[in-house]
Design a protein around this nucleic acid. Structure first.
Lengths: 335, 335
DNA sequence: CTGTTAGCGCCTTCAC
DNA sequence: GTGAAGGCGCTAACAG
């Protein structure tokens, strides 16, 4: 592989001149520039990013850690991050944490060791506080994505989870629902806690008694299945607070022999790919995931540019996509 | 950040000793080792991967380029690659090509510039031959994943596409189907060409006339919709050769007001996440995607270890998952 | 406008 | 069993 020395020799200039034409970092006579450029062509020279990064202690790359880039919401975020990073000439290093604290820790370590200029992090559910504490020392700035933690001195990008759930509950109540099952999931995930908070907001709006409601945190479908047993006390609507939780919920419905929307209404957050091709077509609160990813890169780039500005938190609106799984108008009849 | 010099000074040894305890690359007195280790603890020293990589010209990392890590089959491959790479202590750098030749080219360039030790590549449909030609010069070995090209001097991992399609067609014929529509897609993608070849193999097995069959390469749903117009000449079974093509096919069915399996049978390759939760439940030829990813890492690691062994091609069996979309037994009646 | 030079942090021969 | 020293390829003073 040709190096700058080769190029310099062939062009008959010093290596510092080569470096400067390469980086446009100082004026150089058009004539010499030409010579250098043709020497570069001739040798097929390519800059050694490693040596360059080492010297400048900057890699022009950022890291992204998500729990699973294959899940629809995260996949979209990844796309958004990719796009925004590419637009800024940043290389993206991507790692999955598989929702596991250890793997997350390792991924962050690895990326930091590879000297990414900054890190975007959608924390795992069990992510220990120590993770972020350890990060604060590092000079690489962090942006928290999707899973936001109050009172943390980091830039953050998330969705308006609480408000979206409130709207969703309002919608369901307008269809006569008064008795819900919420598959809330692991409440250590702030996103999920926010959604649950929004649920109670919604109940309050409609002056519905929270005591009658079923909130499921258990990761197995059993709790829900049990609740579905008795047709008399059964909830009329199920709300799943994430894609994996929707899987859990649908599995329970299936096992209970219930169908949507005939027997019970169903709504979910985040949802599935191709929501109109398969049935039941699920009413879904969809994250502006692409934009969230892009925004995270924006915040990161801004912070790289001005490290001492105060941290910002962005909340993006989510879309309530109404589909047939909540569109049955017969609740009144059944009650 | 502490460097080896700091550690050496504190431990009262030379930096070469520090290097050797770090890498276990030569014997060192237990006593001195202890001193070095405690100096490391004390300073919080972390190895500088960049400097190390530059010196050794090895990064212990590999690159993976896929068209879209969000698509189910690729998502699984990514998981397989991640797992196998982690098991070998390799860092994974992931990039999406978005099925675009330019982005693919750039992704490959970027990863190579970052000095990955090797590259796993699921080529985009429009990937130019020049891409691989350019790569051959580079010393970083390449493994081709999923989309295999005959007669190329690279290690490759794919599925038994041709044979799987043949089995699928056999299954459908055993249910009475004689008239198919195959959504074949872009035949520059070898995977898709192989599947189409398998289709004709299957016809031959059943002595069915290929002339009566509809092969659709057009990426819009129109061609299929048109073919579905006339109930008399309509195919009785649709086969989609990939997930995006299944989307295209299902969209066409939807638009034509036909349903599966009542009006027409439907089968697909690769398929969707959670095939049992939504209807229609699609008969699917599923890639052993995770294993394919893991196998690719295996081949890459082997080649890294012995660069001059001759290239190997691995073909993994795929699973034919029968579901209700092909399980109607009434073809005879309708004919 | 251009060249010389001193490292960035590490690994690795070569000497002891 | 341990140290000294050169250099990987590059950038950024510092000179001219």
């Amino acid at each position: 592989m040709a190096t700058m020395v080769d190029v310099a020799r062939i062009a008959g200039v010093s290596i510092s001149t080569v470096s400067h034409v390469l980086n446009g970092t100082r004026n150089v006579e058009p004539a010499t520039r030409k010579k250098v450029q043709s020497a570069i062509e001739q040798t097929g020279y390519r800059q050694d990013t490693l040596a360059r990064a080492m010297r400048r202690s900057r890699t022009e790359s950022i890291g992204l850690v998500v729990s699973d880039a294959g899940e629809p919401a995260f996949a979209e975020m990844v796309h958004g991050v990719e796009k925004a990073a590419a637009d800024r000439g940043l290389t993206l290093l991507l790692a999955n944490s598989a929702e596991d604290a250890d793997r997350e820790q390792r991924a962050v370590r690895t990326l930091l060791d590879r000297r990414v200029d900054g890190l975007i992090l959608a924390r795992a559910a069990a992510s220990p506080d120590s993770l972020l504490a350890g990060l604060r020392d590092d000079k690489a700035p962090i942006v928290l994505l999707d899973r936001l933690y109050r009172d943390l001195p980091f830039d953050q990008v998330g969705g308006e989870n609480r408000d979206s759930m409130r709207q969703l509950v309002g919608h369901l109540m307008s269809h006569g629902h008064r008795r819900f099952a919420v598959i809330a999931g692991d409440l250590r995930v702030p996103t999920l806690q926010e959604r649950l908070d929004g649920f109670f907001d919604g109940l309050r709006d409609g002056e519905v008694d929270p005591v009658d409601q079923l909130v499921i945190k258990d990761p197995s479908p059993n709790a829900l299945m049990h609740a579905l047993d008795d047709p008399a006390s059964r909830p009329t609507a199920v709300i799943a607070c994430s894609t994996p939780l929707a899987v859990q919920g649908l599995t329970a419905l299936e096992a209970s022999g219930l169908s949507t929307p005939a027997d019970i209404a169903f709504a979910t957050f985040d949802g599935f790919a191709y929501p109109d091709l398969f049935s039941p077509r699920l009413t879904t609160v969809r994250q502006p995931a692409f934009d969230m990813g892009a925004a995270a890169v924006g915040l990161l780039a801004d912070r790289l540019a001005s490290p001492d500005s105060s941290p910002r938190t962005l909340r993006l609106r989510q879309a309530l996509e109404l589909r047939e799984s909540t569109e049955l108008h017969s609740i009144g009849d059944r009650a």
